[in-house]
Design a protein around this nucleic acid. Sequence first.
DNA 1: TCATTTGTTTAGCGAACGACCAGCAAACCG
DNA 2: CGGTTTGCTGGTCGTTCGCTAAACAAATGA
Lengths: 202, 202
Amino acid sequence: MATRGRPRTFDPDTALRQALDLFWERGYEGTSLNDLAEAMGIASASIYACFGSKEDLFRQVMALYGTTSGEPPRRALREQPTARAATHAMLRATADQITGPDTPHYCMLILAAPTGAVENHAVREFLADLRRDMHTTIKDRLARGVTDGDLTAPAATLDAIARYYTTVVQGLSVQARDGATRAELETVITCAMAAWDTLTSG
Amino acid sequence: MATRGRPRTFDPDTALRQALDLFWERGYEGTSLNDLAEAMGIASASIYACFGSKEDLFRQVMALYGTTSGEPPRRALREQPTARAATHAMLRATADQITGPDTPHYCMLILAAPTGAVENHAVREFLADLRRDMHTTIKDRLARGVTDGDLTAPAATLDAIARYYTTVVQGLSVQARDGATRAELETVITCAMAAWDTLTSG
DNA sequence: TCATTTGTTTAGCGAACGACCAGCAAACCG
DNA sequence: CGGTTTGCTGGTCGTTCGCTAAACAAATGA
């Protein structure tokens, strides 16, 4: 099936990355289609033709965000040998990501659209679902620690611990947004991990 | 000095509370002047006459928010006898505030405007300053614990602990925004307080 | 060659935005 | 009473919002 019609003159992947940069900087509602069109180097009508609506574009942007910036923390959870090491490494990978020199200092997933106009409710719930997935992912990793034998805790406690470290991740994003340095985030992570032994010895 | 001219037909305090409700529900950028005028029961021109600009109104709203919803956590810090009890009570008062039945489930200070359009940068920094005050307030309370003799920790550790519990507070707000219940927040707080003894015995 | 398909540009849609002014209304003063 | 001060309503300023129809451009297939 050969390509019919006039070929596209821009690269959708490149345009998506440029859209990501802008959404990351200004959030969902703070970014207008004119801003996007200018940053992506195409007319707004081309955005509609290629990506759908503003909301569709944002969802594709978040998918890209998840496979790039979101991957290091997820990989840390996956690859570290114990639940404790995985949690610790996940927190540090998160801190690395939200204090990078070339990107805004916060997690897009957490702060791109926590509140806003009523007509964007679907976008907020979309992000909320992704955030709730964080809790599930961490909880699953803790459960793996139990089956691996490196963690002993009742099921109810697993949920609490997972929610606790999810809360820390989300708080770190606000800290970074307010100018906390990587070193300061490290001290927070150290404090958060100080609870580990107490939580897992009960 | 008697009141000259036509007296005001609306109560500024009542109108401010109504503005608070709307800003709380939709955030800063998600709330339009038309929305505000409708909710406050006055024309937008009256808003300008009485409160200045949209940004001025928001700052007055945040002042009201600080003296109402913000007071219980602050009072907990102030009145509890020890640094530990103060921190614990502050966390619980925060959880109470962000899961109230009649208000949105998050802290306005934290989530009303974390990101947004460039022209609202001043508003974001205004809120960021208030959030940084949280860290200072908590740190001061910990320092009081040291002078009171109920807490022993080096100065550098005080800063880390204060930032840690500030981070937890901010994370709790995201948790509540995503639907976590008061009971679930309580489990997070229990986890967060589990770190206390380890942190203050070093 | 020429219709077809697809992408891009242009131009603009209706609605809402924040902001503000003119003019009227209602209180005070002398 | 007239004159002054102040507050409120209605309307409108120019801009921007997300979005789209129509015309044009560039490729393919027959």
